[in-house]
Amino acid sequence: MRGVEAMAQRPDGSMFPFLPFPTPIRNADGDLVGAVNMLVDISDRKLAESNQRVFLDELNHRVKNNMTMLYALIRSAERESHSTEARAVLGDAAQRVGAMAAAQQVLYTEHDQTGVYARDFVRACDSARQAFSKDVTLHIDVDARYLRNDITMPLALILNELLTNAAKHGCDDSGRCEIWISLMRSDDEYVLTVRDRGPGYDFKDTGRRSSGTGLIS
């Protein structure tokens, strides 16, 4: 057997991880006459991998805590502000930080450090339900199974803006709002769709990166 990791016991009773490289020896007629087996000790590699996991877990934990603290500080400033415009800006900023914190939380809890499960990620980015007192119902359809880490933060911000817009403008007279989220994988692309029962609008890039549509663009 090759390409597998196993444990071996030394004569003193200590154990060590190794990779086996068995090689059969055959004569001119092709008959098996013997074999050579080499065991490669990978103790140092396993130790390095363990240290790396501990480092990444600690890093993710600190980032998560810092985002949570930042979110709390912005919310506190929003509550204490006497300016309506300032409260609106701080509220938007807090919600965006909250979306990033939700994405970071999913990354932190995943064992695989290269990506996350798409369905878990989309559900974690559901900030509309917490941000508004209105009755918001989400219908989530996720076909993409896996998301790479490098696209999670932009996707979290885009989802946050679209859900916020839908929760603000897509509700009926009674305050009830239904939102459909679809994330599909098509060849090498991800297709995200967010829709509601609202009146709709023409999406135009405002040119201001701080605005919702500007951030999405």
Rank of each mutant, 00 (worst) to 15 (best):
3 G>W: 06
4 V>E: 12
8 A>Q: 10
10 R>F: 04
14 S>N: 07
15 M>H: 12
20 P>A: 15
22 P>D: 07
25 I>Q: 14
27 N>C: 07
30 G>N: 02
33 V>D: 04
35 A>R: 08
39 L>W: 05
41 D>P: 06
44 D>F: 08
46 K>Y: 07
49 E>D: 15
52 Q>W: 08
53 R>F: 09
54 V>D: 14
54 V>L: 14
55 F>T: 11
55 F>C: 00
57 D>S: 15
60 N>Q: 13
62 R>G: 03
62 R>H: 12
64 K>C: 08
70 L>P: 00
71 Y>S: 11
72 A>D: 14
80 E>L: 14
81 S>Q: 05
84 T>F: 07
84 T>C: 00
85 E>W: 01
88 A>F: 04
89 V>Y: 03
97 V>C: 01
104 Q>Y: 01
105 Q>E: 15
106 V>H: 01
113 Q>E: 11
113 Q>W: 10
114 T>E: 11
119 R>M: 06
124 A>H: 00
125 C>M: 08
126 D>Q: 04
128 A>V: 07
136 V>G: 01
137 T>P: 06
137 T>S: 14
138 L>Y: 08
139 H>E: 12
140 I>M: 06
145 R>H: 10
147 L>F: 03
148 R>K: 09
149 N>G: 10
151 I>D: 01
152 T>Q: 09
153 M>S: 05
153 M>Q: 15
154 P>D: 07
155 L>H: 05
159 L>P: 08
162 L>D: 03
164 T>S: 13
164 T>K: 05
171 C>M: 13
177 C>T: 04
184 M>Y: 04
185 R>H: 09
185 R>A: 15
186 S>W: 03
190 Y>G: 05
191 V>P: 01
192 L>H: 04
192 L>Q: 03
192 L>A: 03
194 V>L: 06
197 R>T: 04
202 D>M: 09
204 K>E: 11
205 D>C: 08
208 R>L: 09
208 R>I: 03
209 R>H: 10
209 R>P: 02
210 S>K: 10
212 G>F: 00
214 G>C: 06
215 L>I: 05
